[in-house]
């Protein structure tokens, strides 16, 4: 099987290698050959990407080397902004907190959707209802969800969660009001909010697993757990890798939850990298340090790009086999 794959790959690449070199085409023949209309078709997309993505990225790169308040003329300061950010003690707090959030989200947020999806795919009746229920939190606007959860997390004994836990003799817990419980509380809400989307992806992937594999496993006398372990998970491997990298990128850029729940508190215990970027730019009413904010953004982007590239390189072989 493997050898066939390898040889077919070689075959498919051989014709282009043996093809005669193409003649250099002039602008006129390029236009006649459809180049112009292709370009015109692409133009709206190029404009949208250019104006809303590439131009801001370019501006951010430039701004990270400047000191500006966006009103008076900007000054070039070289790498000063990067030096300032790297020597800011809050940066390391933010990195630590973001790493902690990502870790907790990975430990709790990553397996839960998978378990849910597998369970739901096993359900025979009313599967649509379960999918809808699982997806519901994604439909709730994130800001509304956070404000709702703020009520749930009310730290007084009469708060929603504390009342419920009180019935079984637990609590009251401080939730967001304590340096050690604030971050896990944020992760809990984030997991609830995001799980639905991932469940749908997994459910779609599960339907693409050939049923014969399960039949074969049944014939071999495999239990349900053996089927999941030996059939479902290996078949989902590609999707699992994609969702893992998406989640890592997503959690490295977590902003909404700390911003709305705690504003980075108590005492910077939920200050994340993106919140720090926001604080640099807009934290003080007048001291907008846009240079430091863009410098940290650029550094974050580079780290994430390297992380993604490295990750895909390491796992490409594994995912393809």
């Amino acid at each position: 099987m493997k050898s066939t794959l390898v040889s077919s790959a070689t075959d498919s690449s051989s014709p282009s290698r043996s093809a005669p070199p193409r003649r250099r085409a002039g602008p006129a023949s390029w236009a006649r050959g459809g180049g112009l209309s292709n370009l015109v078709f692409l133009l709206p997309t190029l404009v949208v990407f250019g104006v809303f993505s590439w131009y801001p990225i370019g501006r951010a790169l430039v701004m990270s080397l400047q000191q500006t308040n966006l009103v008076t003329a900007a000054q070039w300061v070289g790498l000063e902004n990067f030096r300032h950010v790297l020597t800011d003690p809050l940066l390391w707090t933010a990195i630590r907190n973001t790493g902690y959030f990502a870790l907790l989200a990975l430990v709790f947020g990553y397996p839960i959707p998978l378990v849910l999806a597998v369970l739901m795919s096993e359900v025979r009746r009313a599967r649509g209802l379960y999918s809808a229920l699982a997806y519901l939190p994604v439909v709730v606007p994130p800001v509304v969800a956070v404000l709702l959860w703020k009520f749930f997390y009310d730290a007084s004994p009469t708060g929603v969660f504390n009342t419920m836990l009180g019935w079984i003799g637990l609590g009251p817990y401080p939730w967001l009001q304590n340096e050690s419980t604030a971050m896990p509380s944020l992760v809990l809400e984030a997991t609830w909010a995001a799980a639905g989307g991932t469940v749908i992806i997994y459910l779609a992937a599960l339907t693409s697993i050939p049923p014969e594999l399960y039949d074969a496993a049944s014939v071999d006398g495999a239990s349900i757990f053996a089927k999941i372990w030996h059939v479902t998970l290996p078949q989902l491997r590609g999707v699992l890798l994609i969702t893992l990298i998406l989640q890592l990128i997503g959690t490295s850029q977590v902003f909404l939850e700390p911003y709305l729940f705690t504003g980075g508190g108590p005492s910077n215990s939920t200050l994340t990298i993106l919140l720090l970027i926001y604080d640099y730019a807009f934290g003080q009413s007048l001291g907008g340090d846009y240079g430091a904010a863009t410098a940290l953004s650029v550094m974050l982007a580079v780290v994430l790009a390297v992380l993604s590239a490295g990750y895909f390189r390491l796992t490409r072989k594994w995912a393809a086999s």
Binding site: N178, P266, S267
Partner: peptide, 23 residues
């Protein structure tokens, strides 16, 4: 001078005292 920044830098101090008994 730098009033808002001074206030901002003291926020975490007050929060620490109110959320951490051993601050």
């Amino acid at each position: 001078k730098n009033t808002q920044e001074l206030y901002g830098a003291l926020d975490p101090v007050v929060q620490a005292v109110l959320s951490n008994k051993n601050a």
